[in-house]
Amino acid sequence: MRLALWLSFTALVASISVRDARAEWPHINSKLRSGQGAIHKVVILPAQVDYKKIRFEGAEPRTEESDRIAGSLYSAVSKELSLRGVEVLPNPLEAARTDAERYVIADLETRYDTVGVQIRKRPGLVEQGQATLDDRVATFAPGAGSDTLVFIRGNGADRLPPVPVGRVPFRAEVAFVDSKTGEVLALVRFSSLTDVANKTDGRLASGFREALHDLPLPAPPPKK
């Protein structure tokens, strides 16, 4: 009996540690659950990633890797949402021609980060419908044809030696915000247990796919 318990515990630990990605329970606004809100057409804001390299002599911010991971994260989110029947509108930063248009995007990102501080600490605010960016988001021109704005944040570190316990190499969060009222409709979080700086795309996509699983989207999640 003891041996069986020990073996099953070992198998469980092994199965967790070999998985590349892990998703947390999503935080869904009651409006979205009850069907009062919907995610059909989205504008995805450029992903922002903070990635560091940590060695025995200290930490170094890795701007190039951060940008590369941000690009992969954006593609993964875009692709997975399309697979779930969501229409993804063009990247607003690519469409921005003037400084003023780029500042508007940056200001909206800042606004999300201000609210992000609280929802990271108390994700329950999303479920209670108390997290909002205010209806000023409705004046965000690139979001005109959309019903939802998507914000992506990630942070992680490349550690040597890699630390298997307690520290997750990479965490990401994706927030869905009503593009008319500014209310945060959902917050999904996932992490990658292995290096994302080199083999990025697949790992991030599988993490996000899993995190999206319970979100009410036009198409059902793909069968495993």
Binding site: P46, Q48, P61, R62, T63, S66, D67, Y103, A106
Partner: peptide
């Protein structure tokens, strides 16, 4: 790293 940071500030419209 500083050159990269300069580029990132530009890219993020800061």
């Amino acid at each position: 790293q500083c050159e990269a940071l300069d580029r990132q500030f530009e890219k993020r419209a800061l």
